[in-house]
Write a protein that binds this DNA or RNA. Structure first.
Lengths: 208, 208
DNA sequence: GTGTTTCGAAACTCAAGCGTATCGAATACG
DNA sequence: CGTATTCGATACGCTTGAGTTTCGAAACAC
């Protein structure tokens, strides 16, 4: 929308509404402060607009001039987490699984991305609009990608015939999530071969 | 502590402190209301003492005479969830794993027990005392039991040699948790053979 | 009966936070 | 320059809920 910091490029569409233009820097500061505070706290109910304004060095007026309430701001703020999403691959199913596992590990270790999953799992009743958006923008694409990959593995014979795909997906995602949580893997302590270990573990199973 | 509803048995210890005795029914009603409201809501911050008092049909005075603040009440209320804990078994490692998986499935489907895990995972910063208690009373015993079972399986050869035990545990618990969450298994729709399917799936692995 | 304690209900104080309004200063345009 | 809009700051009204206090009634012991 804006080119320089305090200036709006007068596109052919809107002839510029006269008066002092809105600060793009303030907008970024608000969204950054929102994401930081979400990542630091746990639930959305302890996140206050006043704390956001203070952290962003901004008046509450500047926030309410852009978003009419808290949920609108949250929707926009979480939308900026692009989550570049799983890149495609194709050499072998095992290697692709490792790539996905690595993406999940990275996401689960980054505070800003981790809170997205927390919100999706815990705030469904209080913020259905927000959770639905997260579900469609982040969860569903990944679920579809993994499902396709697992089906491909079954088709090529790299995975066991008659595989229960939803169960296998819970297997992969649940293992990653739980391992991160319980073993306290940090953003920097996550070793590069952890994804490989997890995938190979899943492929081999527990039996001898 | 109490035998009849409104009476305290005068044990040899305390000779009965004179005055109207505290109502045991009120105490149970308070704890029941607390657990119900925790199960219905999601976080502990939207749980209000006033709502508990209203649900229990009790004055706030009756609550504050027993517990000095909200966290004390929560600690006591959650302590009453005995979670009979994993019973021992011993025929085969697979059967024992199925038993544990069934316990986890039952717990994860019961609203009152499910919220315990939610609290342990999400409220660590706001209620460290409470979370630590849950960790020691509920999580740690189960973690130890599964660890012992997995090690036994490795020793008897029923499980693969060189098994990564923490990873295998994340495998079992994470799969159950994630499957329940994403597939929306309810308290009544949980089929009796789901635990067997999960365990056999884990034992076999994804590979052919 | 008297004395003591608890009961539920209601009122209270205090703090946090939402959303609004108002202020002087700043930044644009013409 | 004047006009329009946004800026940050501050104050305001309002609601919620914690924790306390007061009240009359009730339940015990003596």
């Amino acid at each position: 929308m804006t080119t320089t910091d305090e200036t709006q490029a007068a596109g052919a569409q809107t002839p510029r509404p006269a008066g002092r233009p809105r600060s793009a820097r303030a907008e970024r500061a608000i969204i950054d402060a929102t994401l930081d505070l979400i990542a630091e706290s746990v639930g959305l109910s302890e996140l206050s607009i006043e704390a956001i304004a203070a952290r962003a060095g901004v008046g509450k007026t500047t926030i309410y001039r852009r978003w009419s309430n808290k949920e609108d701001l949250l929707v926009d703020a979480l939308s900026t987490l692009k989550t570049p999403l799983p890149p495609v691959a194709g050499v072998s199913v095992r290697e692709d699984l490792v790539v996905y596992a690595q993406v999940f590990l990275r996401d689960a270790c980054d505070a800003r991305n981790r809170c997205v999953m927390n919100i999706a799992m815990n705030e469904a009743e209080r913020h259905p609009r927000l959770v639905e958006r997260i579900r469609q923008a982040t969860i569903e694409p990944r679920r579809a990608a993994i499902t396709a990959l697992l089906r491909r593995g079954v088709a090529t014979g790299e995975l066991r015939a008659g595989l229960d795909v939803p169960l296998a997906m819970a297997n992969l995602v649940g293992t990653v999530m739980w391992y991160i949580r319980t073993e306290g893997v940090d953003d920097h302590t996550v070793s590069s071969d952890l994804a490989e270990r997890i995938v190979d573990h899943l492929l081999a199973g527990l039996g001898p």
